[in-house]
Design a protein around this nucleic acid. Structure first.
Lengths: 147, 147
DNA sequence: TGTATAAATAAAAGTAACTTTCATTTAGAG
DNA sequence: CTCTAAATGAAAGTTACTTTTATTTATACA
């Protein structure tokens, strides 16, 4: 994500276009995997010269709330963030081996939402994350086993 | 979940049947919503007399790993746990108003898994959580608005 | 292009969630 | 009953995250 795109997103959200926000977005966008708040801070800080950790948390929260970035769930009780250029509704396939995040366009939630509605409830959001091993990693592991 | 059921689960997992484990399971099972580690501790401690917080964390981890309890995801960066009697594959509808967790039998992930496999990847697990407002809460809110 | 101002940031201190370590206890196998 | 591996509790430690407040800055508007 370049500065223009970043600025566009921020303006649409009525957030000021600050170097900190642009750099946080840039960090996440240039990472095919996901990053923790701390990792974003470590990467963005030297580029900006100075950057407060609370600022990173605030920006991550704002952008998550706005749907520009998504949380990635792991069992280590830490929070990870991923930014994907695809802004349509989609979900994530997370490789447990290389940590890469792939977009999954299929949602398959229509049936589920229908069931909820049939009980009088309403659906406001949902989390769908698929964990597994990506094709590249499977091939790599197979090759390693054969030697 | 009574002691017998709890003991059955633990034995199947080759875990010793301790009062601590039984009580943690009992706490979660008697709660239609979800609890944080801290909340489990607060509830189980007075019943057991003494209970270490690390023990609670350990037990929650073991049971989550084994699939006996599930994590509930919220945006407050804290971890919550839910135990449901239904041990078949299913997902959760979490009411944002009353925090109640309802089982959802429909999964709808077959299509997604197929897409992953078509790219050479494999799926090992997935997270699906539906957030919304349950029928009861919608009715309650409507009634409140009418007065 | 200035200027006012609301929004945003940094620094410092604080809180809460969670973990590690290790000595002691206990469940369950034999 | 006894032995042993597993489990627990206590204490201390770590890390993730938040709050507060003074200062700075982006931007709307003159």
């Amino acid at each position: 994500m370049d500065q223009q795109q970043g600025a566009y997103h921020l303006k649409k959200l009525k957030l000021k276009v600050t170097p900190q926000r642009l750099e946080v977005m840039h960090c996440l966008a240039s990472e095919p995997s996901y990053l923790s708040a701390d990792e974003v801070w470590s990467r963005a800080k030297p580029i900006l010269g100075s950057l407060g950790l609370p600022t990173v948390y605030r920006i991550l929260d704002e952008l998550t709330e706005a749907g520009v970035i998504s949380r990635i769930f792991r069992s280590d009780r830490k929070q990870y963030y991923h930014l994907c250029p695809n802004q349509n509704h989609h979900h994530h396939f997370v490789c447990e081996s290389c940590r890469r995040v792939e977009d999954v366009e299929v949602c398959g939630l229509d049936g589920v939402a229908q069931v909820i509605r049939s009980t009088g409830g309403s659906v406001t959001s949902h989390i769908l994350q698929i964990n597994g091993v990506c094709g590249k990693c499977i091939k790599r592991e197979e090759a390693a086993n054969e030697t």
